[in-house]
């Protein structure tokens, strides 16, 4: 075996080992690498009230309620399996609307509702001019915000 050959194998072996190590580490830390939990995750993990977490999902249609003369709002986010009521006092981002993906940071209240300290809008991977969006809606083929999406806003195949 020539020296070049040997160096090639050393580099390839090193990269393979590193790749496997990285994959194992990422797999082990999966829970810490997710940016937010879905409402189903929250239910399954039995998160305690007072623990700071992020919850993400689509804002459920017709769930937005504003308290008169106060900046308090409440709405439900859903991952199409479970939904979670979120209470928030503050200004919602511009992109916030029913059917839109959002990520809220805050704590669970003892009554099961989620008290958000901040609400971020999530943008999906679809880009189009407004006229195209309108004509898609008119033609009844609008599907970017409909139930075939999961909590992260990704369209299911």
């Amino acid at each position: 075996m020539t020296r070049k050959r040997r160096r090639l194998f050393v580099v390839l072996l090193g990269m393979a080992t590193l790749g496997i190590a990285a994959a194992l580490v990422l797999f082990a830390f999966e829970d810490n690498l997710v940016f937010f939990y879905s409402p189903s995750d929250v239910a399954e993990r039995e998160i305690k009230p007072g623990q700071r977490i992020r919850v993400g999902g689509l804002v459920e249609a017709a769930s937005l309620q504003r308290t008169p003369a106060s900046p308090e709002v409440s709405f439900a986010v859903t991952d199409m399996r479970r939904s979670l009521k979120i209470v928030y006092t503050g200004i919602l981002p511009d992109l916030f609307r029913e059917g839109q993906g959002i990520v809220a940071e805050g704590t669970l209240r003892p009554d099961g509702a989620f008290e958000a300290r901040s609400v971020l809008a999530k943008h999906d991977e679809n880009y189009m001019p407004p006229e195209v969006a309108d004509s898609l809606k008119r033609a009844g083929v609008w599907q970017h915000r409909e139930p075939q999406q999961d909590a992260s806003g990704k369209a299911r195949p």
Binding site: L33, V103, K122, H123, E125, G153
Partner: peptide, 25 residues
């Protein structure tokens, strides 16, 4: 963006099933 829940949106151009960006963009 595919492996974990992220705030950043998934890929729009280099993805299976073709780009989800309007041709004008």
């Amino acid at each position: 963006v595919d492996w974990w829940n992220t705030l950043h949106q998934p890929a729009s151009v280099l993805k299976i099933g073709g780009p989800t960006i309007h041709p004008a963009m």
